[in-house]
Design a protein around this nucleic acid. Sequence first.
DNA 1: TTGTAGGCGTTATCAG
DNA 2: CTGATAACGCCTACAA
Lengths: 350, 350
Amino acid sequence: MSAHPAPTARTRITIDDVAREAGVSKATVSRVINRRGELMSPELAARVQEAITRLGYAPSPMAQALKRGRSRLIGLVVADVANPFSVAVMQGAERVCRAAGYMLMLYNLAGDEGREREAITALASYQVEGFILHTLGRERQVLDDALQRNKPIVLVDRALDAPLDLVGLDNAQAVPLALDHLLQQGWNELLFVTEPIQSATSREERRAAFTAYTSAQAAQCRGQGVEVPAGDDATLDAALRALLQRAGDDARRPAVLAVNAVVGLRIAAAAKRLGCTLGRELGLVTFDETDWAPLVGPGITTLAQPTDDIGQQAARCLIERLENPGQTTQPRRFRLPARLLARGSSQREG
Amino acid sequence: MSAHPAPTARTRITIDDVAREAGVSKATVSRVINRRGELMSPELAARVQEAITRLGYAPSPMAQALKRGRSRLIGLVVADVANPFSVAVMQGAERVCRAAGYMLMLYNLAGDEGREREAITALASYQVEGFILHTLGRERQVLDDALQRNKPIVLVDRALDAPLDLVGLDNAQAVPLALDHLLQQGWNELLFVTEPIQSATSREERRAAFTAYTSAQAAQCRGQGVEVPAGDDATLDAALRALLQRAGDDARRPAVLAVNAVVGLRIAAAAKRLGCTLGRELGLVTFDETDWAPLVGPGITTLAQPTDDIGQQAARCLIERLENPGQTTQPRRFRLPARLLARGSSQREG
DNA sequence: TTGTAGGCGTTATCAG
DNA sequence: CTGATAACGCCTACAA
């Protein structure tokens, strides 16, 4: 209709506006912004700078991205934001990214691992420069695709056979930490409860460490493992009953190591259903510290993960790769230590 | 150096590649993508379509955004992702946005309301088309700025004097629901505990509703309110002791209504510290349903917010404005009802 | 029905 | 040291 931009919606102020205001060329303005005042007359730089602030100009990341092929965007794929661990990691990662001038683009799988590929494609189409993946990562094809496009990937908490950077918990340290404590407190009929392992390596690692420990210490304890699908409380209750039975038969003391906070909470609920008291008839240690752990039953003993550090480390690791492209360093693996917070659920009681 | 794009990092496939592959012009490809097969020979459309899939082409949102001035991005500012309510809302909103072809850009304030302005500016610079704000929103100036730039805003859970769309809980319905229940169970010395109200209208509304109710029912109960800053357990303990005291003096039964899950958990912790049992010496109802509510103490009675609905509604509301620009409809306010989940913490016991 | 050309806001190359 | 000018990938009048 009208030849000029609609005067109603005041159009965005561009580099041209600044150039005009300062009486210089766009190129000069661009230089002031990027190589701050390098190789140019100070007075001109000052004039431009003033025009910028006067107009309140900010360059358009979109246009910049288009031009340089770099978006300063990082894609974060999360298995489930309802998982407190995911959220905690997210926080650490976001802080680091922002400090380095990157924005985080979040994609939540909401537990539906099938949408993983969709997530990566969507994020990639938005030109994210790299990925932080806290998810299964079974879609090898998509990963290869991302890598071919030269987009670095950092895996959080879940390894993969692919040669990728990884940051997660030191499960080989964490599991003995928990089991030593349980044995010390007199619990000697042990059960490891996890959601279906599938290809989640952290679950896998934890189970492996559990098995290794219990067979090495066979003189002092017995150990079994069970996989309990989400929502399947019948299986869970049955496993717990069997555990109590085994212990009762041989005058042993039964305890559970839960693979994460979600499972830990389910164990607490099951114990309540079965009418057995935590810390008395049943010992419990779970991975992941939470706000509510001290208040459920007699307090739940947890293996606290350094979630914030994990998130930060992941972000740092990725950003380092982004800023040094071409450097094909070997994939790095960061394993951070857990801390044990002993509470009532694992303390021997009168 | 070289005249052609570096062959090493395989460059992104563009609309030109597709055009060449299909032997047509860019314009035709663009048409196929946008007005799907409208006003064009089916065979050509098919040929283009095939080229698109063969090459695995996807248009660059960046370039599209630059051209159309629309980014298909929505900015979500969250007060604190550690708050389960925020996360739950986020989930609902994200689903709706994605279904409508929008991406969510997340900015977490991590409890630092001072960074609100920074959040909005950063998001705005990325050309988000609108905002969902779950935060205090005291930065009037920034809001006005956003509105002037024609960027719609939807407020979640916290009203404002500005004429903005809003979706949140129906506090006037929720509070009596909780208090009726408490009275019915025989609790009649009531205390409303909140974090500092500041300008958070949901806290304000809840307190107002509490006050209105207790003065209307003065014959059957007494009510007071207290603000407890985060981390200040001394104040909390003192308030609780005073409550127990008041009740003891007049042979009344003391109960607390907590403004949200975080405060609720703190009350449970304080009760434990003070050695008084929930549901017996002290009644408790808190806003926000959580996974752990059934397992803390005798189970915590909660006012469950329809978080997912709230998130969805917010997203829908915003998207509707985005797709009907110019339509200066009056600001709308959606108030969704709470449900009461009665548990041990509020049941009269022997 | 299809193609041509101009421009969205930046940056980078190359003259001056 | 500074200023034109050509892309970046896409959309959309306008022309054919």
